[in-house]
């Protein structure tokens, strides 16, 4: 079993695609447990950083109620101009409700939503790791890969390494691009599959893209169905 004190070094080496951390995972006596613990640690750190950073963000911005009150006259004018309604009381009530949902979702007025998302973060990361590994493993085996599922779970856990950058969100107003995180994560997953399954770069890349492509396909089908329904409704 690896000691968590080695994790920073593993993260650093995985981020620059060095083979050593992947080989360490492959040779570990229990790679999937190691992977699960690693991903959970990253998730907990990330959740804690989001939580603290979010509280500091709220403390740096004006109070949510004061912002809502300041925005209300402008919103009422816009609503009247675009024909959403002339009754200022109705618009104020609707805006108050909308503001409550929106600000509450982002945890602007209080920390409750933030606490919820902080707890959700490790769970989300673990689920993402597990399902992405299953799909990638199946694709890699179909493409002639030789690695086992247990070893793939271990090496694919390192694809959570870029999420460590999320710790920077402890500083208010810092935002880590999800494009950066997802692309970097996919590149580490590509390296993990190439090493674990001894695949050529083309096959490893195809195997790694299987998961996101499947998600894209599902998303595209859902969007197409929604658009079809909207178009049919519009034509009726």
């Amino acid at each position: 079993m690896l000691q968590p004190k080695h994790y920073p070094e593993m993260v650093g080496k995985a981020l620059v695609f060095e083979a050593e951390p992947f080989l360490t995972m492959v040779e570990d006596d229990n790679p999937w447990v190691e992977g699960l613990f690693f991903v959970t640690c990253v998730g907990v750190l990330l959740g804690a950083a989001h939580f603290i950073g979010g509280l500091l963000w709220t403390a740096s911005l004006p109070p949510a109620d004061a912002v809502r009150a300041a925005l209300l006259p402008g919103v009422q004018q816009v609503a009247a101009q675009i024909g959403l309604g002339d009754d200022p009381t109705q618009i104020a009530a609707a805006f108050r409700q909308f503001w409550g949902w929106g600000a509450g979702f982002f945890g602007y007025p209080n920390g409750f939503a933030r606490f919820f998302f902080a707890i959700l973060q490790p769970i989300e990361l673990v689920l993402q790791w597990f399902f992405l590994t299953l799909v990638t493993f199946a694709a890699a085996r179909l493409l002639g890969g030789k690695g086992t599922l247990v070893k793939t779970l271990g090496t694919m856990a390192l694809s959570a390494a870029p999420y460590v950058l999320g710790i920077l969100t402890i500083i208010p107003f810092v935002s880590v691009s999800s494009l950066l995180l997802s692309v970097w994560s996919l590149l580490i997953a590509y390296r993990a599959i190439a090493i674990t399954h001894h695949l050529s770069w083309q096959r490893a890349a195809l195997a790694v893209l299987a998961g996101p492509l499947l998600l894209l396909l599902i998303g595209a089908v859902i969007i197409a169905i929604v658009m079809l329904i909207l178009t049919i409704r519009g034509s009726l």
Partner: peptide, 10 residues
């Protein structure tokens, strides 16, 4: 570009 009142609100 925004209506005057919304600009003032911001």
């Amino acid at each position: 570009v925004m209506p005057s009142q919304l600009g003032q609100s911001l």
